[in-house]
């Protein structure tokens, strides 16, 4: 159960709509199932009261929506951002992707969002409804009846290893500013690093072979905001290029990881939306770990205007040969 209730958010949104600070609100409304919430724009108090939803399933990172929304909207947009979303927000500002003046950010605290796949694993198939109560989730299923689950057990992977409860960008805060957390998010990367190259190749081959190229990871990724993605660009020479073998097919994810390197804030949206449950965030996290390792800690989006080490040069930079040696040594 989130600390902040739906009512508090509606209250805040109403206030800002009514006093003219904002002209629209970016929020969530109910989807087809109770665990399925959809981002939506609300333009009036009536719409808010009727459809606005806020619960443990509101994991979507709204930062990327602002790129298009700010172009469409006449006035200011109210957006509710969780701490992890604010990093993407700053990163997009660094890249001049939207006009900060057109956004009013209300920072909301977050206790971690739940993962419907984890619920399905714990409670079984056939989820009829999920109720978020003060002492956990009550899941009604077709086959197992009502199952009670603790939220902590069914959190999204990114929330289990949450890196920060700190809001790095906001106009107003509901609750505390929060702190950066000592996170265990690199443990899984380390596990992969300890594998032999063959084992690691087999791991990724297994994971990526499930990819159906639905492009959901790219479409949700706040770092993927190109006017025209290279994978859609007929002039790029890589669009619709026939794959030479079963692995080349998976180059999509590797190229994508390279494209977002140094810009990925580790928001975890790619893995959250993947219908095939591929742990795509691990590719990006390996890059983040290596950058931290080679150039000192760097968190994309921690501040607006920061320069990622890979597109910055300082005389203390590691020599390429040393980076290779260090990388090899670690993996050996």
């Amino acid at each position: 159960m989130q600390k902040i209730s739906r009512e508090t958010l509606i209250e805040k949104a109403k206030e800002l709509l009514q006093n003219g600070t904002v002209s629209s609100v970016l929020g969530w409304k109910a989807g087809e199932f109770s665990y399925d919430v959809t981002p939506a724009t609300f333009n009036s108090v009536e719409e808010l009261e009727k459809d606005f939803v806020y619960n443990d399933f509101c994991g979507a990172n709204f930062s990327k929506y602002l790129v298009k929304a700010t172009i469409k909207a006449e006035g200011k947009i109210l957006v509710f951002l969780k701490p992890c979303d604010t990093y993407s927000f700053n990163q997009l500002l660094t890249e001049h992707r939207f006009n900060r003046e057109k956004v009013y950010v209300v920072g909301i605290p977050c206790e971690g969002m739940v993962d419907v796949e984890a619920i399905r694993k714990a409670a079984g198939e056939g989820i009829v409804s999920v109720e978020c109560t003060n002492d956990g989730l009550v899941v009604d299923t077709l086959y197992n009846g009502k199952v009670k689950l603790a939220e902590q057990d069914v959190l999204l992977e990114r929330c289990k290893v949450c890196k920060s409860k700190k809001h790095v960008a906001y106009d107003e805060l509901l609750g505390d500013e929060g702190e950066v957390i000592e996170s265990k998010r690199f443990d899984e990367v380390e596990r992969l690093e300890k594998m032999t190259p063959d084992e690691r190749f087999a791991f990724w081959q297994r994971e990526l072979s499930r990819c159906i190229r639905c492009n959901a990871c790219r479409d949700i990724c706040p770092a993927c905001t190109c006017e025209q993605c290279v994978f859609n660009n007929p002039k790029s020479g890589v669009e619709n290029k026939a794959a030479a073998n079963s692995f080349e097919e998976k180059m999509f994810h590797i190229i994508r990881a390279f494209h977002v390197v140094g810009r990925c804030t580790d928001c975890g949206e790619c893995s959250r939306v993947c219908p095939q449950n591929i742990p795509l965030h691990l590719l990006n996290r390996k890059f983040i770990k290596d950058i931290d390792n080679f150039y000192g800690e760097y968190q994309a989006g921690a501040e607006v205007g920061s320069r990622a080490p890979l597109v910055n040069y300082t005389t203390d930079d590691i020599e390429a040969s040393d980076a290779v040696r260090k990388g090899d040594g670690e993996n050996a």
């Binding site: 660094t94 890249e95 001049h96 992707r97 905001t225 190109c226 006017e227 025209q228 660009n233 320069r307 597109v311 910055n312």
Partner: peptide, 13 residues
């Protein structure tokens, strides 16, 4: 210009 995002990466490097 049709494809440029204006992200400033090029100007930075």
């Amino acid at each position: 210009e049709i494809m440029c995002n204006g992200c400033s990466s090029c100007a930075n490097v």
